[in-house]
Design a binder for these strands. Structure first.
Lengths: 204, 204
DNA sequence: GTCTATACTCGGATAGAC
DNA sequence: GTCTATCCGAGTATAGAC
């Protein structure tokens, strides 16, 4: 008889704890003790499972950054009209960010502070996610369906408007006086307002 | 006779070195040794001038974040038409960011990782920079001069598009294959493309 | 596999000579 | 004011008992 899997193995607990601590504090700021505490074990056991802090970090980080970048591919690749694609992209991406609010800051941080490691160890086999998107823009522009625009700028605009609020959240909350719930509602709204804003700008 | 000021006092050198190291590595990642090296002195002297790492950091950070937020006020407060204001804002802000490319990531990081300290020590007397802007949008909307839009979303869109490229630079450069010069040219272009993009969207 | 105890290292901070 | 030498805490990593 197959044993019913109790899913919270020690390894699972460690990975979960490590993810939250690393994403929140970054590699330099994270403490093995915090990870151990959060996992309900001691430091020694961390090293038993994952040789070193560096190794543990890479494990977490690869998975996290894969999520950050790969979710997009399916949507960008889909064979649907451009405007629908923009709507789907913003909506799906913001949903993902709502579930992983610390992800972008963490990824961009490591890319900035340890560019070598990022490029070599953490940035393997990434798709050129916006190339197909760029072609699509160029084609629509040529067909005179939308106003002429540089695809790179449009793409940058779109991801900026989706991601930045999550990075700037604490400052935004302080300066607007929003609380957690209001902020959540605000970014929920953005699933609609961003595509609207973009499409208004592109429409002839 | 007034003594000619030789401007590179030790204190100046320390502050300059500390600024670049802190902005690049963040509080947790920065090393006093690196700051000392870059300033051409030794660690002991750092402590002679600025009691502790924490103190030095706060000094640098307050000044830096003041720059980050206060440059905006003058532009937002100016008594000129809305569209001109948007153009001026993007242009001036991107110029400032070109001169301080690490600033936003650093500020937003500390706000995220040490929210208490940020709110208490580093976020003193900040203006509610976007309140006047919001009123102006509301007024233009009522006068039916522009399409109706929530000022909070518009403001967030604008700062997102200006700031985010600087935060995402390393990832963007890797995934597009841009080099330093191309990236610089790209954000220079954005001084024009962002206002265009916004104004196209707002225009009736 | 999991723990306690401890070794080792790095880096912030201080003492004291000049 | 500036240096060398040193201290000491924090935090990663390991040894070894259970």
């Amino acid at each position: 008889m197959v044993k019913i899997q109790k899913q919270d193995t020690t390894e699972q607990k460690i990975l979960g704890a490590a993810k939250s601590v690393f994403l929140e504090k970054g590699m330099a700021g994270a403490r093995m003790q915090d990870i151990a505490d959060k996992a309900g074990i001691n430091k020694a056991l961390l090293h038993y499972y994952f040789k070193s802090k560096e190794k543990l970090f890479e494990m977490i980080f690869k998975e996290a950054s894969a999520l950050f970048f790969s979710k997009i591919n399916g949507i960008i690749d889909a064979d649907i009209p451009l405007f629908d694609k923009i709507e789907n992209f913003c909506s799906a991406y913001i949903d993902m960010l709502l579930q992983n609010p610390y992800l972008p800051l963490s990824v961009l941080n490591e890319a900035t502070k340890q560019p070598q490691r990022f490029k070599q160890k953490l940035w393997k086999n990434r798709e050129q996610i916006f190339i197909k998107f760029a072609h699509e823009i160029a084609s629509e522009t040529q067909k005179r369906k939308i106003k002429s625009i540089d695809p790179a700028h449009l793409f940058m605009n779109m991801i900026s408007m989706c991601i930045f609020p999550f990075i700037a959240r604490p400052v935004w909350m302080i300066s607007t006086g929003m609380d957690e719930n209001e902020f959540r509602a605000f970014v929920e709204e953005r699933k609609k307002t961003i595509p609207q804003f973009i499409i208004e700008s592109l429409n002839k």
